[in-house]
Every structure is written in structure tokens, then in C-alpha cells.
Design a protein around this nucleic acid. Structure first.
Length: 492
DNA sequence: TTCCGGTACG
DNA sequence: CGTACCGGAA
């Protein structure tokens, strides 16, 4: 029995099937049904290093390398190889199209105008779960304030969180800072270019490591994010859910094949460009809803388009409907200062600051008695201030802020907090809902997104003035602060 | 109101 | 491998 090599894919020297020419199988019905990881139909066993296995290691294309197997010239196995070959050729064409498309159509984004791995890394972390439009002003401010790994490593956590405020997923910011410290300690402040070293950094997973390796260092590392998943699933007509482990594996293979094909091209910085092109196509053309297939550079080979499945791919995830939650929070004023509390080290929004409050089962109008019972605080003139709605995971949270005049703290069990001036308040990192409430106090016009906040720069949060009116249980009642009109409070 | 999404962690 | 984390856009 003759033996034949299963050539490495992607990349490699090209497939040669003995006794067959490239055109012999033109017209062979390609499996475009998406997951092509069905084993080669031609054989039921294969040999690798002396061991015989029942099935080929091939997932999709012959992914296994240097594996010998019995050849069946002209038979099913050759057909299989032909399919593999055509798939590869198709991928090379698609990669070429993308490489040409990108420089013409890509948005000019600030992190694309640099090759500084730190700048690119920061952008990739920010762009996790966050859209370009949102992240851009944050990135600019961040690079201004913390322009190097060393600067980030040396920055106090509270300052880093403040710079992140509004982006959500605050663990990203904490991890970014820790990772910078590790880069300083382990790599002398130089961002490593090896995938393994990148993966060892907190907050850097498979996607981000690949993104930094390819975009900053032009290595043929695969990336698969939401955009790329959608593009590849449609391109290859993958109808099964990308969340299935096997499908996800397949998508990573395809992503690797794409960047591998780019690596063989002559285009400058091809790997960097290809990966960015895949994401850019997903962001500009291959949109989740209403994709712009007419202007897609890959409309020709796109399997989903040919089959009219663009709307069905990628398979949607079913989510349980959101459960309603209510947070009652209190803007307690005392002599121009407001009571704020810092979250503990565990749980939601850890180490961010919030107005004191509690969770309630249903929306209701809290009474002074509620306030005393829940927070141990006696207050006067309770009135609704603002309601903020947002959705987190399966919870639709309604945060209802109430304004009240602090009188005294009754219970020693009550959690302490810090009384802060408006200026100090503006420097604390707050979750978005609370930031929106704080904006009612500091004046609606001033936004705490990077675009608007000028007067807050240079502040070092967390170093606020000595803690004012200690809520002592003594019962001594601070003289009521003169009532200040606060903008945004409905008259009456 | 619904949908979208990388990484860490258990 | 399922779940928690967040905010924004359609």
C-alpha cells in the first residue's frame, strides 16, 4: 500500500495529490455546509507514530501534520484532499481580498496610528465588550495620563479605576494595572511578543494575546472575537451555534487559516492587517443585523449569502428574560458633603464608590423609617431625585436615588462611609448608575466621560480630605446644613 | 426592551 | 463548561 503525506494546513507547501491534477475535480460538490470537520470519508483508520487510530485527526481540513495514511488514488480520499485544497485556495483568495480592502475602507482609529505594543494592548483591553466609539475618548485620555507600562504600573488603583469609570467591567482595569506591574517585573517594562508570555498576563486571554501578537508584532496569531466569529460563521455558512465547543474550535481553525494565508502574502504587515480587516469587516459591513452585503468584498465566496442564511447566522443565543431588581440609594447631604461608601474587595463593582442604599424587592417610596432600619441613619426631607435604569446580565436594575438631609447616625452597626465634598466626589470612581446620580449634584453639563471632564484631571482620587462629620452614635445632631438647591431636582 | 460580548473563576 | 461582570446600541 502506498503512503502519502497529509500536508500541514494552513500554510505549507501546497497539496499535491499524486496522479490527479488540480482541475480533475472541478465541479466536485464542495461541502459548504459549514462544519466540515467530518472525517475524511475514505478511511476509517490512520497511523501516527506507529499507532493505528480509528479516525483521522482531521477537523475540517487535514489539520494533523506529518501524519501518514493509506492513500486511495482517485478514490474518496483524493476527493477529500481536493476539497481541502479548494478550501485552502478559497481562504487564500479571501485573505487577499481582505488585505486589499482594509487600507481603503478601514476607519482611522488612534491606536491604528501607532505600533506601540502598550498602546495597542490598552486598546484591545478597552475594546473587549466595548464599542470603538465608546472606547476612543477613554483610550486617548488614558494614553495621555498613563503613556507607558511603567506609568501604569506605578499608578494607584483608584486613579486607574477613575480613568476607567464608565467603561464597565472594572476588573479589566485592575487586571491591566496588575499586568503592567508584571511586565515591569518580568520583562523589564517591555511588552512580550510571545503568545505564552502574553497569555500569562492577567486579563489577557486567547483573543487579546493573539491581537497583540498579530497587530503589534505582526505574528501569524489567530484572533476570534465577536466580529470575527460572525464574519467567519457567515463566510463558511456555519449554522450551528458558535458557542458549541466544536464550532468554536472550528472557528479558531478558520481564523488561523486566514491569518496563515495572509502570512504567505507579500502584503506589508499582512498578519496585522488581515486580523484587523476581519474585525473591521464585522464592524462596518458584516453587521449583526442588516449586514451590507452589497458592499462586502467577500460577497462572492460568502456561503451564508449564497444560501440566503445571512439572517440566520450566527445562531442567536437564547437569553432568559431579565429579572427586575430595585436599588434604593440615598444622597445624604451634610454641610455640603455627601456620604459615600466604597465597595468591598469582592462582588460587584469592587472597590468602586457608591451612594449608600439597599436592594428592595419592588419599587417603593422609602420612608425615614426605612432609612433608619436599613442604614441606621436619621434623615429629614426625603424626596425622589432621579431614577436610573440599566441592565446587567439577567437583571434589569432600577436605581432610585432619593435625596435626604442627614441628621445623625443611630446605630453603631451601620457601615461607615466617607463624607466627601462635590470636588472629592467627582474624583471617586463610581459605577455608571451612581455617576449619573452624582452628575445631578455636580451640575448636569459636566460629564465624567473623558471628553467632558477637564477639571478632574490631575487629581489623585483616594486621597480625599480627612473624613468629616463622623456619624457618632452619641446622638449629637450636626446643625442642619443650609438647604442648597440642586440642579435637576424637580421643583416642589 | 432586547441584544451584544472576552476573561476569570468555580 | 456555566456563570459573573457592565454599558451601549438597535
Amino acid at each position: 500500500m502506498r503512503r502519502q503525506r497529509c500536508f500541514p494546513l494552513p500554510g505549507g507547501e501546497g497539496l499535491r495529490v499524486r496522479g490527479t491534477g488540480a482541475n480533475e475535480y472541478e465541479g466536485f460538490p464542495l461541502s459548504n455546509s459549514g462544519l466540515t470537520d467530518a472525517p475524511c470519508p475514505a478511511f476509517t483508520h490512520w497511523k501516527h507514530r506507529g499507532t493505528t487510530y480509528k479516525q483521522p485527526p482531521c477537523a475540517g481540513f487535514c489539520a494533523g501534520q506529518n501524519i501518514e495514511f493509506p492513500s486511495l488514488p482517485g478514490g474518496n480520499h483524493s476527493r477529500y484532499l481536493m476539497r481541502v485544497m479548494r478550501q485552502r485556495r478559497k481562504i487564500a483568495v479571501m485573505a487577499g481580498n481582505l488585505l486589499e480592502w482594509f487600507p481603503v475602507h478601514a476607519r482611522s482609529l488612534p491606536w491604528r496610528r501607532t505600533r506601540d505594543p502598550y498602546a495597542i494592548w490598552v486598546s484591545e483591553i478597552m475594546l473587549q465588550q466595548t464599542q470603538v466609539k465608546t472606547a476612543t475618548p477613554y483610550w486617548k485620555r488614558w494614553m495621555r495620563e498613563l503613556p507607558t507600562v511603567a506609568a501604569l504600573a506605578a499608578a494607584p488603583e483608584q486613579r486607574v479605576l477613575k480613568l476607567w469609570q464608565g467603561l464597565g467591567y472594572y476588573t479589566r482595569a485592575r487586571n491591566l494595572r496588575r499586568a503592567a506591574q508584571l511586565v515591569v517585573a518580568r520583562h523589564g517594562g517591555i511588552i512580550p511578543d510571545r503568545l505564552d508570555d502574553l497569555l500569562a498576563l492577567p486579563g489577557v486571554g486567547r483573543y487579546t494575546a493573539g491581537a497583540v501578537a498579530s497587530i503589534a508584532f505582526n505574528q501569524p496569531a489567530a484572533i476570534l472575537d465577536g466580529n470575527v466569529t460572525r464574519v467567519l460563521a457567515r463566510l463558511f455558512g456555519i449554522t450551528r451555534s458558535p458557542r458549541e465547543a466544536a464550532v468554536n474550535r472550528r472557528l479558531w481553525e478558520l481564523a488561523a487559516a486566514m491569518v496563515g494565508a495572509a502570512a504567505e502574502s507579500k502584503a506589508p504587515r499582512a498578519c496585522s492587517r488581515l486580523n484587523q480587516a476581519l474585525m473591521e469587516l464585522g464592524a462596518l459591513v458584516c453587521l449583526p443585523r442588516q449586514p451590507k452585503c452589497d458592499s462586502c468584498p467577500l460577497r462572492q465566496p460568502c456561503a451564508a449569502r449564497r444560501k440566503g442564511l445571512v439572517g440566520e447566522i450566527p445562531a442567536a443565543r437564547l437569553r432568559p428574560s431579565a429579572e427586575r431588581r430595585y436599588h434604593e440609594v440615598f444622597v445624604l447631604e451634610n454641610n455640603g458633603r455627601f456620604l459615600m461608601r466604597q465597595n468591598p474587595d469582592a462582588g460587584v463593582n469592587r472597590r468602586l464608590w457608591q451612594f449608600p442604599g439597599y436592594e428592595s424587592q419592588a419599587a417603593h417610596r422609602p420612608t425615614p423609617a426605612d432609612l433608619l432600619g436599613r442604614l441606621g441613619i436619621v434623615a429629614a426631607r426625603l424626596e425622589p431625585l432621579k431614577t436610573v435604569r440599566h441592565q446587567i446580565m439577567r437583571y434589569a436594575i432600577e436605581t432610585r436615588a432619593h435625596r435626604a438631609e442627614f441628621q445623625r447616625q443611630e446605630h453603631s452597626w451601620a457601615k461607615p462611609g466617607r463624607w466627601v465634598s462635590l470636588k472629592e466626589l467627582a474624583a471617586l470612581p463610581l459605577p455608571s448608575a451612581h455617576q449619573k446620580i452624582a452628575q445631578m449634584l455636580t451640575g448636569g453639563a459636566q460629564s465624567e466621560t473623558p471628553s467632558g471632564a477637564s477639571r478632574l484631571r490631575r487629581r489623585r482620587p483616594g486621597r480625599a480630605a480627612p473624613i468629616p462629620p463622623p456619624p457618632s452614635g452619641s446622638g449629637s445632631c450636626p446643625s442642619p446644613a443650609p438647604r442648597r438647591r440642586v440642579r435637576g431636582v424637580p421643583g416642589g
